[in-house]
Each structure stands twice: as C-alpha cells, then as structure tokens.
C-alpha cells in the first residue's frame, strides 16, 4: 500500500501522519532507546520494548517509529514492520486513550464474556479494534488473559477488571469517557492512559507497583481452605501454621509423629514460609 504523501506505509491502515519527530521528542526517544538497548546482550532484543516505546509517544506503531527502530538497531523498516505486525498489542492505527479488552475466549465467553461484548459493542457502536469518535475507547476481543478464576474478565489498558457484567463494563467505559478516575480490581489505583502503560511495557517503571492488592479473593480460596484444614489438625501442627512469624520450628519438632519428619530433619532454619500442613500429600502416594 502506498500512502498519499508517498512516504512508506508499513501496513498502517489507513495511512497515517508520518511527520518527522520534533527535535526534542527525538532526543528523548533516543535517550530512552539507549537505555532499553543497554539491558540486552544483543541490541535486537530491544525491539519489542522499543515498539512499546514508540506506542508510548505515538499511540500506535507509526511509520516514523518503525523507521526509528530500524535506524537504532540496524534493521530495515520491513524487518521491523514484520515483527510489529506479528504481535497483537502493537497497533497499526492510532489507538484510543483506553483499550477495553473483553475476554471472549471459551471460559470467559461462556461465563458471560459474549454477553458483555455484545452489550458494550452495541453501547459504544464500535466493533473489534475500532475506536470511538472521541478517540477515547478502543474496543477489542481479547484471548485468555490468565485470570480465569475471575471470569468474566475485562482488561482496561491491561489492568484487571474481574467478575464483570454487561452493566459494570458499560459503567467502566462510561466513566473512562467522562474523564473519571477508574480503579482496577487488581492493579494500580487508577487506569493509566494507553501511552503511559506503553511506556511501562517498554520497561520504564512508573512507581505504581506498590498500589493495589497482592492477591484478589479467588487467588486466596485455596489458602483459606488450607488454613481451615490445618485448624482441625493436631495442636502442634496447628501452631506451626497459625503462628507463622514466631517459633514455628520448635512446634514442628514437637510433632515428630507426623509424616513431615523428613522435612524437619532437613529444614535448616526456623522457616515457615515453605512449611506445608503436616502429612501433606501422603494419601496419594502410590
């Protein structure tokens, strides 16, 4: 495809603005790129993060961004473009400020992802990889995002929104379009913009790691069961699990009849981090 102004079009549909970067943008891009490249033994490994970096400035993988990457890494534009078009997170046309990804892989779809998709797509009047006229929301059908225990899942700029319904997702997109701050279920305290998140994905930490929860409720279900199981066990074993930061080791040693004896022999410290309920797994021994 040839763009109207004759500049190269690396699969961008439709052809988009390829004005050169301004001098100061280019300077800061090159400085950032040098930092990215320095992380790897071989420069080409920096290509994926560099493409995220391009998106953090242009909001998509722009032709000028492709040429910059090619220049930085000693590749051709075609080589860079060939990589960019392989990965679904790289956008071939300007993305909205927020990407809303509705998981419609089997499990989420069945748990309600299909209903969410239909409802929100109709609400916004756009389909897959399309953006609202105000430039704020790009809608996507996404594949499994590794949160099946929270199905149905919606991602907003790659932050988790768990256990969604059609109504809750409509609220989410409406709030984002109204400029309200929106808090993911498990993530930073607010959803950052597509460009901001792209910069993080290029490996530039935004300092928000300490926000949000460590684990959501579903992640802790097994832990809760284990605690209940250990509460019904011998007093010694119970103490070992119930008082994790104190003198668990003596307690463990005081329970030599449990089948964890080999573990006690080899455990070198007062560690309780890795101390499973006593007798774990024995029932299954073949």
């Amino acid at each position: 495809m040839i763009s109207t102004d004759g500049s190269p079009n690396y699969g961008v549909v439709p052809s988009s603005d390829t004005d050169a970067y301004s001098a100061d943008v280019l300077t800061s891009l090159r400085a950032d790129a040098a930092e990215v490249i320095a992380r790897y033994p071989q420069a080409r490994s920096a290509l994926l993060p560099l493409l995220h970096l391009v998106q953090s400035v242009d909001g998509f993988v722009s032709p000028r961004g492709i040429e910059l990457c090619a220049d930085l890494l000693g590749l051709t534009g075609a080589e860079v473009s060939g990589v960019a078009t392989f990965y679904s997170q790289y956008k071939r046309h300007p993305n909205g400020k927020y990407t809303i990804g509705v998981c419609t892989n089997t499990l989420c779809a069945i748990m309600g992802g299909d209903e969410i998709w239909d409802f929100v797509s109709a609400h916004l009047g756009i389909g897959h990889d399309e953006t609202t006229a105000d430039g704020l929301v790009t809608l996507e059908r996404i594949e499994c995002n590794a949160a099946c225990d929270y199905a149905p899942v919606v991602m907003a700029n790659w932050e988790f929104f768990d256990n969604q319904t059609p109504q809750s997702t409509r609220q989410l997109v409406d709030d984002l379009r109204s400029g309200l701050s929106v808090t993911p279920t498990r993530g930073a305290s607010k959803v950052c913009s597509f460009k901001e998140v792209s910069r993080v994905l290029a490996g530039f930490h935004d300092g928000l790691a300490d926000e949000g929860v460590g684990a959501g409720p579903a992640s802790l279900e097994g832990f809760k069961v284990a605690r209940a199981q250990s509460a019904t066990k011998t007093p010694a074993a119970k103490e070992a699990t119930a008082a994790p930061r104190t003198k668990a080791a003596p307690a463990a040693k005081a329970a030599p009849k449990t089948k964890a004896a080999p573990a006690a022999d080899t455990a070198p410290t007062t560690d309780t981090l890795f101390d499973p309920p006593k007798g774990a797994g024995k029932a299954k021994k073949k």
Partner: peptide, 10 residues
C-alpha cells in the same frame, strides 16, 4: 481428604 500445601501461595 488430601491436605492442601500452601507453599508458593503461603
């Protein structure tokens, strides 16, 4: 019943 083993999840 098998006992759960919260080690990584502890």
């Amino acid at each position: 019943s098998t006992q759960l083993t919260p080690i990584l999840t502890k």
